[in-house]
């Protein structure tokens, strides 16, 4: 049997694709869209929000809920400019995401890179996975 090479990212892409097309599809009326990941001892929430000034973004974590607020706005081109296409939206946004477990909110960290917001929120200590050793008699 021939070996088929599939890199881990390709497997993840396939998995994301399958999940986004399952039951719910893409929700409407929300910004940004988010993906929630389990990173073992933390939850990682990613949201695509290209061209947003990170200084305009406010992130709050309270109990099991993450709230992201901000605004996407860009300079209008010169008055004599004529649009051929206009597909990119701007405006204020507010997104509330409930996470499936208890959080250690004071340790939450957020980064904004290449237009993607990543919020990493450690799970509450008692909710982190723990390996239990078997005691031998």
């Amino acid at each position: 049997m021939a070996l088929v090479y599939r890199d881990p990212f390709e497997q993840l892409q396939t998995e994301l694709d399958r999940m986004v097309n399952a039951a719910f599809g893409t929700p409407t009326g929300l910004y940004p869209l988010v993906n929630v990941f389990d990173a073992g001892d933390a939850f990682v929430v990613k949201g695509e929000m290209p061209g947003v000034d990170p200084k305009s973004v406010e992130i709050n974590v309270e109990d099991d809920t993450l709230t992201v607020r901000g605004e996407r706005s860009f300079a209008e081109p010169a008055r004599d400019a004529a649009y051929h296409r206009r597909e990119r939206g701007q405006g204020k946004f507010r997104r509330v995401v409930r996470l499936p477990g208890r959080l250690s909110s004071e340790e939450a960290k957020a980064t904004y890179r290449d237009g993607v917001l990543t919020v990493r929120i450690p799970k509450a200590k008692e909710a982190r996975p723990r390996r239990v050793q078997i005691e031998t008699a």
């Binding site: 993840l12 986004v20 990941f37 990173a39």
Partner: peptide
Amino acid sequence: DYEGLKPLYVEYGV
């Protein structure tokens, strides 16, 4: 950026 992450809830493909 996706190493070690297991998707739980997905709204967009990458």
